[in-house]
Amino acid sequence: MSVERPTLGQVTHIVGDRLQGRISNHHLALLGVSFVGFFLILPIIFLIPESLNLGSSTPFESYRRAMDSIYVDAFVRSFIFGLATTAVTLSLAYLLAYYLTFAARRVRIVMTLIIVPLWIAYVIRYFGILLFLSPAGPFANLTGIDPGLLFTSPAVILGLANVYLPFAVLPLYNSLNAINKELIDASRVLGADKWWTIIKIIFPLSLPGLVAAGLIVFILAAGSFLGPAVLGGPQQAMIANVIAKAFLENFNIQFASALAIIYTILLVGFLIAFNTVFDIQEVLGDI
């Protein structure tokens, strides 16, 4: 008596039959969410008990310490640098997005040029800026001046703006491009010159993209580690640097966790506040 070996096709067929009806698409979605749940959300939640330091002689000590002016400074600085970076980035991004929408001949090539930097590791891009601003670097060599910008706040903000610029251009471009060209024609015919048309028609209609871009850049910039680490000095330390230092250099897990939790709460709070004005789902809807 001979027994046939099953073929791959037959096996998939049988497995497929068995699975069908047992595993629905809901399960697949659940699988994805569970993975993130187990390997990101849960780990973060586990930081909470760490931070609270319960069971030791000094519970909540970490949170008390976080109220020290140095750390509050770091939080405030992160917020301010975030705002400043957003302002600079949005201005530059608007110029590029406007160019792409209304003036560029070969949109694909220009767009690729804007996206390519995203494929390059942050650490390298910051390295390039560091080189550029360095007193022995190309800029100083070529022009003979040392701008003296290295390790100052403007350097960090410029660096952050440079690195996150492509993230801002994309939603802005989508918004601008979606404007019906006949609206611009109509505005001209109705008597408005180019500047009035930009102010009264184009800009208001590009606001959704502007808001989305601003949100993305702010969140990324405020939470940046590498920017201040590479381009800034101790005076420019932002919250990510403080948290990392607490963990990696001082091995103070409790404190680092506390700072991380506070940061997350502030971020969520910010998003909720933002949502009351702007409705996040709509803003990020196009992504």
Partner: peptide, 26 residues
């Protein structure tokens, strides 16, 4: 569904420092 799918994007949204620390402890 729309809101829950945002969960899949969390690793992008949460600051990598926090992710790093949380993961190494976990």
């Amino acid at each position: 569904k729309q809101q829950i799918s945002t969960v899949m994007l969390l690793p992008m949204i949460i600051s990598p420092v926090i992710t790093g620390i949380a993961l190494v402890r976990y």
